[in-house]
Each structure stands twice: as structure tokens, then as C-alpha cells.
Design a protein around this nucleic acid. Structure first.
Lengths: 249, 249
DNA sequence: CAGTGGTCTAGACCACGGG
DNA sequence: CCGTGGTCTAGACCACTGG
């Protein structure tokens, strides 16, 4: 139980920073070194510690900033909407289209969407929380679900709202597969995250609640320093929830 | 896109270490520094990088060792058994009882187990993968499910086997709540993990598959450098089968 | 341009683990 | 005891960001 200087410093700073709102500028390495009378590398160790604990975010050339992490709950009953989920947590959300092309999806994606060998929309989007890039990934959408996707997204940047308002369907999560991963270099760059930062990889299929028609398959990486993903999953039948759609065969 | 020395070194070492089986001793800081002709702190940065990427594990006073991460899938169909899941991944598994007491569970636990104000078993266990502590947590078990838990666990260290063989029930996951967290100091110590290491917190309820009787509520922390938890809220591998028992009302 | 964080050196002392 | 990793110093140069 060795008490080390940099952890003492980290503890002091953490208490101070936790009281701050998110996005606030905090003391940098040189300032911390001076204030506590240590070498810069020691001050740096303290700030790195706070970064791994998701207390601050550091941007080269710019500074260190306090972080407010967002809870992102995933369960079957919640609407599969990035913007609605983020806004429910009290932050601002937006998504931008990076590319929109037509492509043949990978085998298991085509299968999930009940496609044959035909192409479908391949939509690459980046999503933000309070103007921080937090998610990046691909949405695979069959052509017959939304013929003119470009026009639809000009009307509303929320894919969920496009489904509800323009297509007239109610997306619901059919299945989700998720794991925590070390982000590879390409994804980390797309998310403006530190290389070998941690994140979530989430793959999920949305179907229409009424007809069970496959609407959209999402493959998405999420920065775990910005988003705290929480799974709340009913897996088997629960007497308090013995409904027609959840009972095992 | 700055190429840095310690990342070059990390890349070289990673390629070498990935070819090794798990638990193998690898070159330490001083050796790496000599081999690549850099200061020890640079060699250290390379090894730290490999640690955050879950390529190696470092133990003070002992050395650096290659790591083989285990996949731990969670889904409705799989038996909720630590030992069975770990062994299915090709590693050795065991669990030891840390303490066994009677206690009143927290409110939401009592509710999930359909208990009133009575006490139940509070079982603290630590579980190992290849003799590395990988999981630690509490199992809450009603007295009427297993009256003499001590005796039962002397017969078999797998709680799942106790349920199946001695109690004659079939545990199945009813719900799961999971999130990736920074381990707090106490849990990190119990797992012999580095403080502020990363891990999973998983809370899950098991019911008997036949009667839906609540059997056990588990609150468990898992080291993410040893275990790669994968969530599959999946109904069936074949999408056409999904509609059978999972179609919403 | 000044200030930030990122990398790196060449030393030092310490805590810990195992033989 | 020796070798390991953990911490720490007091410098240095660099890349990047912002005004």
C-alpha cells in the first residue's frame, strides 16, 4: 500500500475536477508540476491517471478538460435512437453523414437483413455528444426500406426519426452483440480518440415492431471515455414479464 | 502521424509475443532498453502500451508475461456457469469461497429473489482462469433453495453443478445488467489487478428454467485484461428463426 | 507566436517477489 | 540476495493547437 506522490496529486485533482461541469479547462502539466513542486513527468503521471479514470480528456496542443460521461442504456424496450438516448441523459446529440454509398454487405449482415445478393445502402456516420466525437460506424439499410436515403437524411439527421416520420415504421432492437475492445488505429482516428483507447463495438439489428421487417443493421464503435454503455437485458422469461414476445420456445 | 520509438518497439514486441502461448515470461524493461538502445523509460512506455492493449501482464517484483485473453459470452441459451464457460474457451477454471455468511441483501436484490425481509446466503467467491484471479463477487442465494450451502460447496466448487446435481434445477439467466468500469481500489486488490485497471461489473439473476423460481443473484467484477466479455442478446443465429419466438406483440 | 501535451534521456531510489 | 517493475528527477526537443 505504497503512497505515491502522483497518486496523491491525482486524488487532490480528481476531487476538484469532479465538482466541475464537463468540458471545462483544467490545469496542465506544467502548472500542476509547479503547484505541487514535482518534476513535470510526475505531474504528467497524475494527469494520465485521471485520463485512464475518465476524469479528464487531454488534447495535444490544446489542453486538458474535464469530462462528463454519458450513460447509454441498451435494452429491448428502449427506442434504438442515438439522439434520443443521449438527450435523455441531458447532453446534446447530433450525427453527421461521412459517406453514403451502395454496397453489398458482408454475409452475416445480408442474412440478418434478409437480403439476397443485392446491394443496400451503406451509411457511414459519426455521432457527437456535446460536440465530442463519440461514435462512428456503418448502417446497412435495404433499398426498399428507404429508397432515397440522401433526401431523407437532409430532412432529419436522426435515422430513427426518419424511420418513424418518413417511413412510418417503429424500429425495435431485435438483437444486440456488444463487446469492449481496444480501438484499432483506423477507428481511433475516426473518433479522434487516443490510439489503443478503449471502446465498445456494438452490432445490432433493428426490425419494425409491427411487421418484424428488418430495417437496419448497425455496426458501431463507441468511445468508452465519453459513453458508459449499460446493458439491461432480459434474456429468459421473467414471471413479471411473461409476455408473448419474450417466452423461450 | 508521428512515428515514435516506443510505438515501433511495442509493435515489434507485440508481433513476437502474440506468437507465444499465455503465461510465458517475456523480456523486461532493462532487457528491452538494451536491445533497442533506448532509455529505460522509453522501453517502459513500450511495455505499458502492450499492457493497455492486453498483450502482456506485468507483476512487480516478478516480471512481464504474455497474456491470452478468454472470450466469455453471455446469452440466454448458454448455461450460466463460470467453469463451463471458461473451459469451453480452452482454459482451466476454478472458484474458491472467500466467505459465506447470512445477510439481508440490498433492496433490489431481495426484490429480484422474491424475498421479504429475511436473510439469505451471502457467498463471496473468487474465480480463476489458468490460476490468474479473474473474477470476484457476491452470490445471493435464498435459504430455501440450498439449505446447507457449505456442505454443497464441499462437494463441488461449481455453483452451477450444485444447482443441477444436488438441487435438481436448471439455472437460466433471467436478466443481466453489465457495464465496463474502472475497478475501485478494493475490488482491484481482491482481483490482484492494477489499481484503476479496467473491468466489468455484471449483475445477473438466474431462475430455474422449468419453474422460473429465482435461484441466485450474482454481483460480479471481472478483469477485462483476462476476460473479454461478449454480450449476445441473440434469439437465434438464423434471422428467419428470430421471428418465431421473438416477434413483438 | 506562445503554450499545450507527446516523447525521450540518463540517471536515481524504492517496493516487491522469488530463489 | 538479486532482479523485477514502480516511482521520480531535471532537463531536452518535438508536434500540435490556438490566437
Amino acid at each position: 500500500m505504497a503512497v505515491t506522490r502522483y497518486k496523491e496529486i491525482a486524488a487532490v485533482l480528481e476531487a476538484e475536477i469532479r465538482a466541475l461541469p464537463g468540458g471545462e479547462r483544467v490545469a496542465g502539466e506544467h502548472v500542476v508540476a509547479q503547484r505541487f513542486g514535482v518534476a513535470r513527468s510526475t505531474a504528467r503521471a497524475a494527469l494520465q491517471e485521471l485520463m485512464t479514470r475518465n476524469v479528464i480528456r487531454r488534447v495535444q496542443g490544446s489542453g486538458s478538460f474535464s469530462v462528463r460521461r454519458i450513460d447509454y442504456p441498451i435494452d429491448a424496450d428502449r427506442a434504438p435512437s442515438w439522439s434520443a438516448t443521449i438527450r435523455a441523459a441531458g447532453a446534446s446529440a447530433r450525427s453527421v453523414v461521412v459517406t453514403r454509398t451502395d454496397a453489398r454487405p458482408p454475409g452475416h449482415v445480408a442474412e440478418a437483413l434478409a437480403l439476397g445478393s443485392e446491394e443496400c445502402h451503406r451509411l457511414v456516420r459519426r455521432s457527437y455528444v456535446d460536440d465530442t466525437p463519440a461514435a462512428w460506424g456503418i448502417e446497412w439499410i435495404p433499398h426498399d426500406v428507404i429508397p432515397d436515403l440522401d433526401a431523407a437524411l437532409r430532412a432529419d439527421d436522426s435515422l430513427h426519426r426518419v424511420f418513424v416520420d418518413l417511413v412510418g415504421v417503429t424500429p425495435r432492437r431485435a438483437w444486440v452483440r456488444a463487446s469492449a475492445e481496444v480501438l484499432d488505429a483506423q477507428v481511433a482516428a475516426a473518433l479522434e480518440a487516443s490510439p489503443s483507447g478503449l471502446g465498445w463495438f456494438i452490432e445490432s439489428l433493428n426490425r419494425d415492431a409491427g411487421t418484424a421487417r428488418p430495417l437496419c443493421l448497425t455496426q458501431r464503435w463507441i468511445r468508452s471515455d465519453v459513453i458508459r454503455v449499460v446493458f439491461e437485458t432480459q434474456l429468459a422469461s421473467d414471471p413479471s414479464d411473461v409476455t408473448d414476445h419474450r417466452r423461450p420456445a
